[in-house]
Write a protein that binds this DNA or RNA. Structure first.
Length: 439
DNA sequence: TCTGGGGTCCTAGGACCC
DNA sequence: TCTGGGGTCCTAGGACCC
């Protein structure tokens, strides 16, 4: 039925400008490496890698490092030969720096559309539906060049009808020079999906890959065309959602409002193996102090705490030990002292003598808003504790983390993690400003 | 010698209620 | 003596993501 409000000329113009749903996935290329390169031009065109905490694994690689065959997630010590032979530059991770640059990138993206979902430190989904379909790719190129110009971080951008398809598009964009791929306006994308291996699809991990292979499904086209009821029956709803999204039916909405988190994990591997209870106690205490400070800063309280200890799963396979214990607080809390006390009680239960522990950690769970969880039992005493926590947080904020701590957290911290290759760049620190020498 | 850390969601199964 | 069945809530464990 033709609307009388428009002339036929206007209508034909409108129908030529298509505004279908368009989601862009912007992904920073080799993000951590790109951050280090930004402050050190000598690294340009050189192989560079960034290591995980404790200098354990390789978690970011420059293209030159990838070309040398260094794999993602590979233990550092295993790649050491290649690294030395090829003079690969190595950095310990510097999350303060990466976090800061991430915020700059996200701020820049918000200029294009405030409807944005920050998905991870180096990725964001953007709603580009307001732009005409035939301009999608150009808009992507524009975003890419502005982000590069304003922040110095190179990105890849994939644009498509659903989040899962924009991931597919991004996968392709990473391999081409322009860095932008749009699947918008392509009638049949089967020939594209056919080249995407099943394990490269967002939401398909190791186990599902195994399962699909067993059933003769090897690429995205096959998954797209398989019966939904079969997937739901033999896997779960998440898998069927993935398949629907490959068909161009959006099932995973854009989460533009950042929601409060539900749990908070603090865990670390030790710099060296730990055997005695005292040192485990120190580490667990430190993690509790970090965790409770973090949830206080977000006005949250925890319903329970889980403490875990474990030996290395990679060696001495016969004597692997891993155990956890959860304790519920009588009333949800963010009080450091109570959290530490409870955690140490849990630790005592799961600690076994004679093991070489590699890692401990805590999880604060069932987080909720601290104001809403006040109840009948809240008292003057609670207000006093609240004030004490506030002054600890303020002091630590002003004078540096762990200015005020608990004696249980230890002083020497021989168990602390290794970080031997840090660039020590701190964008909030004057000492990190580049120095220019007048000649 | 040396193998990261922080999240979310789903499912199955048990406890409990009516 | 016979002893149901449906619903909800919670939790542990697994799978996935970056």
């Amino acid at each position: 039925m033709m609307s009388p409000m428009y002339s036929s000329g206007e209508l034909s113009l409108m129908s030529s400008i298509q505004h279908t749903k368009k989601i862009a996935l912007v992904d920073c290329n080799s993000f951590y490496v790109s951050c280090e390169k930004l402050f050190n031009p000598k690294l340009r065109n050189k192989p560079v890698v960034v290591l995980s905490n404790n200098d354990g694994c390789i978690i970011s690689r420059s293209n030159e490092a990838k070309a040398l065959g260094i794999k993602m997630g590979e233990p550092y010590f295993k790649a050491k030969n290649i690294i030395i032979k090829n003079k690969v530059h190595v950095f310990s991770s510097n999350y303060a720096l990466y976090g800061d640059l991430s915020r700059r990138v996200m701020r820049t993206l918000k200029r294009f559309n405030s409807k944005i979902e920050i998905y991870s430190i180096d990725e964001a989904f953007l709603d580009l539906s307001d732009f005409p379909d035939n301009e999608a790719e150009d808009v992507g190129k524009e975003i890419r060049s502005i982000v590069l110009q304003w922040t110095g971080i190179p990105t890849s951008i994939g644009i498509a009808k659903t989040k899962t398809l924009s991931k597919v598009a991004n996968h392709i964009a990473k391999k081409i020079k322009s860095g932008v791929t749009s699947l918008i306006g392509i009638e049949n994308i089967d020939s594209i999906l056919e080249k995407i291996e099943i394990n490269d699809i967002w939401g398909v991990g190791k186990q599902l890959t195994k399962f699909y292979h067993k059933n003769g499904i090897y690429n995205a086209k096959q998954l797209k065309n398989i019966s939904n009821t079969w997937i739901k029956k033999s896997s779960n709803v998440l898998s069927s959602r993935t398949a629907m999204e490959l068909r161009g039916i959006s099932c995973i909405p854009l989460e533009t409002k950042s929601s409060k988190r539900k749990s908070c994990v603090v865990s670390r591997s030790f710099g060296k193996r730990v055997e005695n209870f005292q040192e485990l106690k120190e580490s667990v205490t430190s993690y509790c102090l970090n965790g409770s400070e973090k949830i206080r800063s977000e006005s949250l309280v925890a319903k329970s705490i889980t403490v875990f200890v474990r030996t290395s799963p990679f060696q001495n396979k016969g004597i692997y030990y891993s155990k956890s214990k959860t304790i519920y607080f009588p009333i949800a809390t963010n009080n450091s002292i109570e959290i530490v006390k409870t955690a140490l009680a849990a630790l005592k239960e799961i600690f076994k003598k004679g093991y070489q522990y590699q890692k401990t950690g805590i999880t604060l769970s069932g987080l909720s808003n601290s104001q809403e969880s006040k109840n009948l039992f809240s008292s003057i005493k609670d207000i006093k504790i609240e004030n004490l926590m506030k002054s600890i947080d303020n002091t630590n904020y002003k004078y540096g983390r762990s200015t005020l701590s608990l004696a249980e957290a230890g002083i020497n911290k021989r168990w602390n993690m290794k970080r031997n290759y840090s660039s020590k760049i701190d964008t909030a620190n004057f000492n990190s400003l580049p120095k220019i020498k007048a000649v």
